[in-house]
């Protein structure tokens, strides 16, 4: 049940974290480490792809909150994409769509980063 995997990809200056499985209090530290590593390497353009994430708990949500401020301070962002309706509902209940950019598709999110660059 506590099976959780993170796959990190990079392309066009954007870092994509693909999440898979269950993100809860037990697995949240894995995601924290992944974010921390990106921040250590000064990579602040982050897209999190939720395509294969089947569950997220409040501890999982907390991870995004813990890093968003630092990322944005460095002119980057964490954009969330490809959520299943169930996962989206959890984010939505808490009002995350007000605070985070949530996209249907990963490409869209990467595109937004590139648009930002042009400006």
């Amino acid at each position: 049940m506590s099976d959780f995997k993170i796959h990190h990809r990079e392309g066009e200056g954007v870092n994509v974290l693909e999440l898979k499985g269950y993100l809860d209090a037990h697995t949240a530290p894995d995601l924290e480490n992944a974010f921390q590593q990106l921040l250590n390497e000064k990579r602040y353009r982050i897209v999190v792809n939720f395509k294969d994430l089947s569950y997220i708990s409040s501890a999982g949500l907390g991870v995004f909150m813990a890093y968003i401020e630092d990322v944005r301070k460095n002119k980057g962002d964490i954009k969330l994409t490809n959520m299943t309706p169930k996962v989206y509902n959890v984010f939505d209940l808490l009002g995350f769509p007000i605070l985070y950019e949530i996209y249907k598709d990963e490409k869209e999110a990467i595109g937004k980063f590139k648009d930002g660059k042009k400006q």
Partner: peptide, 19 residues
């Protein structure tokens, strides 16, 4: 019944109040 509203402790200031 689900009026709009952000979780407590997510963001401060006006954004919370407005939403």
């Amino acid at each position: 019944v689900r009026p709009t509203g952000l979780g407590l402790g997510l963001t401060n200031g006006s954004l919370f109040e407005e939403s």
